[in-house]
Design a protein around this nucleic acid. Structure first.
Length: 421
DNA sequence: TCTGGGGTCCTAGGACCC
DNA sequence: TCTGGGGTCCTAGGACCC
């Protein structure tokens, strides 16, 4: 049963924290959430929230992640709802990752509560211990050191480890041995395979395909014709348990964004622009925290009818200041509002085309040419960061900094003077 | 029932260049 | 004058995941 070259098989583990948000919420508030028999974590200040995580007994009622909270409470009226303890979750996630790093050469945080481990090459280190035994040891150590219950899935590729962990939950381990990938995949419904969502499922069903077994005989050529070369090949490999993706310790960050759904829809441009300032500052802060700059700014708008639109602009030079992000975002918001003027449900700001480091960029050639970001902008943002560092995150209010011109007006954008940055 | 917030990846079309 | 093909960059939108 040993493959011809057993050193070629990779050994991938997926460590998944059991009902992570529920677990952390209980531990953060042992006398409150900790004692609630039916706990749901989620909601949002807007009152328009969804379920982030529901404890197992609540799931018996049909409650699922992503479900509108109103619906969840309909299904399970006696449920206790608490907000997501974000900071505690981030802290805990870092603790878990730190323990995993002691035990695995490569650890990739796939999300706040999931970690891929590439254990390839650790056989000698662990003196021939089976991957399953290693997984159990990891599980115990994470629990001992952080108080976090995790499940562990294992296999030769990420996809298989990901499916395997579902078998292990909660608090268990499941490892699929090398050579068993394809057979293991056949045990799953198409919808359970990560990456196959409602849309792809619909398209397949339209062709009379409902199960992995029905899809297996379809030539890769057909899949490429149906779904395009990339996706076609991807799907063909997927259902056979083939997954070329690797575990990477520090995947490069591609974008940073911040968005808000409002408690009630917003119609006034002035109000929207005020929110746009806050969001721009939030994004700028993270951008500088990561020591990065961005060339593309995107504004996202969700209208009251849930239509979601976005507009983006790529600049010749990267930005790092709140002010420059906001000015660009304000332009883009204007475009979006000009195209369609409906009450806004959600507003978001994002940056992408990221580059490393604010560095010690030499000054002023650009400023003289009227670039989008001035030295003054950068200085201002650094000052803001410093004030926040010393006096806390709320030390700086957006309005005065971002709108030196003083009072904003409530008039239509069309009547405002042209921007001359 | 009425739909969060943070991301990644893919596609398609247009502009532009060679 | 008509007709190419390929590559890169950008934008908008959509699917999907936790």
């Amino acid at each position: 049963m040993t493959p011809p070259d057993s050193t070629a098989a990779r050994r991938i583990l997926l460590v998944d924290c059991d009902v992570f948000f529920v677990q952390v919420a209980r531990q953060e508030d042992p006398d409150g959430a900790g004692r609630a028999p039916l706990l749901v974590v989620g909601g949002s200040p807007s009152g328009r929230g969804v379920v982030t995580s529901a404890d197992y007994p609540v799931r018996e009622f049909g409650v699922r992640s992503g479900m509108p909270m109103a619906r969840a409470l309909e299904l399970c009226p006696r449920a206790t709802v608490v907000p997501v303890p974000r900071e505690a979750c981030r802290r805990r996630s870092r603790q878990v990752r730190a323990v995993l790093r002691e035990m695995a050469p490569v650890v990739q945080a796939a999300s706040i509560d999931e970690f891929y481990l590439d254990m390839t090459g650790t056989q000698r280190l662990y003196r021939g211990e089976s991957l399953e035994d290693t997984a159990h040891r990891i599980r115990r150590r994470v629990l001992d050191r952080t108080g976090t219950s995790v499940s562990v899935g294992g296999g030769t590729v990420r996809l298989v480890a990901k499916l395997a962990v579902e078998r292990g939950k909660p608090g268990g381990v499941h490892v699929v041995p090398p050579g068993r990938e394809a057979a293991f995949l056949r045990e799953h419904a198409l919808a359970r395979i990560p990456g196959i969502g409602p849309s792809l499922l619909d398209q397949l069903e339209a062709k009379g395909i409902r199960t992995v077994d029905e899809l297996l005989p379809v030539d890769q050529e057909w899949l490429r014709r149906w779904f395009g070369p990339t996706r076609g090949r991807w799907l063909w490999e997927r259902i056979r348990g083939i997954d070329p993706s690797t575990v990477e310790a520090e995947p490069e960050r591609k974008s940073i964004s911040s968005e808000r759904t409002f408690p009630t829809d917003i119609e006034a441009d002035r109000t929207l622009r005020r929110h746009l300032q806050r969001l721009s500052m939030e994004v700028g802060r993270v951008l500088r925290e990561k020591g990065m700059r961005a060339r593309t700014v995107t504004v996202k708008l969700r209208d009251s009818d849930f239509t979601t639109r976005q507009s983006s602009r790529t600049l010749p030079e990267p930005l790092q200041s709140d002010q420059a992000i906001y000015r660009t975002a304000d332009d883009l918001l204007g475009d979006l509002r000009d195209r369609r003027r409906a009450p806004a449900r959600l507003l978001g700001v994002g940056v992408s085309s990221l580059e490393d480091g604010p560095g010690a960029r030499q000054l002023s050639l650009l400023d003289e040419a009227g670039g989008p970001e001035t030295d003054r902008d950068r200085t201002l943002s650094r000052t803001t960061d410093e004030l926040r560092r010393r006096f806390g995150p709320d030390a700086v209010l957006p309005a005065r900094i971002m709108e030196p011109g003083g009072d904003d007006d409530d008039q239509d954008r069309t009547s405002e003077p042209e921007d001359t940055p």
